[in-house]
Design a binder for these strands. Sequence first.
DNA 1: GATTATCATTGACTTAAGTCAAACTGACTG
DNA 2: CAGTCAGTTTGACTTAAGTCAATGATAATC
Lengths: 232, 232
Amino acid sequence: MVDERDKSLVKWLGETSLFVGMEEQHLRDLSGIAMVVSYKRRATIFSEGDPGNGFYLVKDGKVKIFMISPDGKEQILHIFGPGNPFGEVPVFAGQSFPAHAVALENSRLVFLPRDDFVALVGVNPALALNLLATLSQRLRQFTKMIDALSLKEVPGRLAAHLLYLSEKQAAGDYLQLELSKTQLASLLGTIPETLSRMLSKLQREGLIVIEGGSISIVDREGLEELAEIGKF
Amino acid sequence: MVDERDKSLVKWLGETSLFVGMEEQHLRDLSGIAMVVSYKRRATIFSEGDPGNGFYLVKDGKVKIFMISPDGKEQILHIFGPGNPFGEVPVFAGQSFPAHAVALENSRLVFLPRDDFVALVGVNPALALNLLATLSQRLRQFTKMIDALSLKEVPGRLAAHLLYLSEKQAAGDYLQLELSKTQLASLLGTIPETLSRMLSKLQREGLIVIEGGSISIVDREGLEELAEIGKF
DNA sequence: GATTATCATTGACTTAAGTCAAACTGACTG
DNA sequence: CAGTCAGTTTGACTTAAGTCAATGATAATC
């Protein structure tokens, strides 16, 4: 017997990019092994080195994946929201989680246990191809991040991020930072003081106008050039 | 009819980590769509932005995957040798290659065309799982590289790399750099001058002894601490 | 084997960005 | 609503690492 909650989980799973287009029966199988778990804001979901017994989908809320140095500096790898999967690496590569995961807001997650899930992948090529697409996309993002960290200076990374947000939010030249400036600094591989100075600098140079966590792009071409060249 | 060359290609494919354990028939299917291509030292295999119509396996030789900034600074992402696959991202994520590939030595590569290969993945779950393991492993490596670039200083990255080489080469405290120092600098996200100074510094501090491209580890614990903490 | 390139090293200098400290804002909590 | 605490901004300073330039060492090629 399938109750209302299970039915809605099946429907929800079928709408995530990972499972889109999968047959009803396969989605029911997935839903059969899935567990919904809740985490409060700031709660740790897993830590680097923890054994990976499964992976997660964000049902609602927001999760950050990050690394931290011995002296406490943090580098955010990803911010994941509704529909995004995370923590897949140990499912397929074995070993433990390579980074930490913390809830940025009160969040509900769908947990999929490793062994059951791998068995489903083995009999479902469409699922395997979706996973390959997801991991490949992730590799592409990491490639861009390495490029940014190694070959671009902070203003260039910031400009690229503002353009990314502008495209994603599709609200013309107006955009929301979506994160606290401390967290944004960590995502861009810098510290809050430097981010603050660089935002001021972009404003001073006439590229943007800052209103708290909202930004208006004034000179899009200038920002694009900065993002491309990576420095002033 | 299968000639001697095809037979050996099937055998070779079956020994690569990507295709290990696959059935003979599937290996023959793979070999049927594979093309062996040769590249001279320094030849470009593909460039960032090129459409990805397939991916490659290194048969022999050595290939570097890298990005380059507008002013010419290079960041190496990977060095691949015999048996390693590369260029898979556009096969599964669509779009174009996210980085450049150049032969570091005269090399022979096995090219696998995208559409034929994806069709094989769709009917061969074991292949899909091997691919997922490979891409996951790649994500783990990139995570480490981002961690190093963002949270460790050059001496820390260098120490970690020396320990990695030592483990890989399994020759006690003696190791070969395997790359020119210019290329190693690019792999570590720095420049030759800085690498040269840092190698001297590690020697001066009594952690290693340098003899050209060969290094002897003198103080392994010191190196490990440096790699862990990321700075002196 | 002489001659180019390419690569490696060293020194002097510059600079992007981090550190430390202080002031300021705002927001949640008791 | 007072008070603490997290986040932001600004200023003064330090520093890791890059740039530029010169020299030395290898190695490749004709």
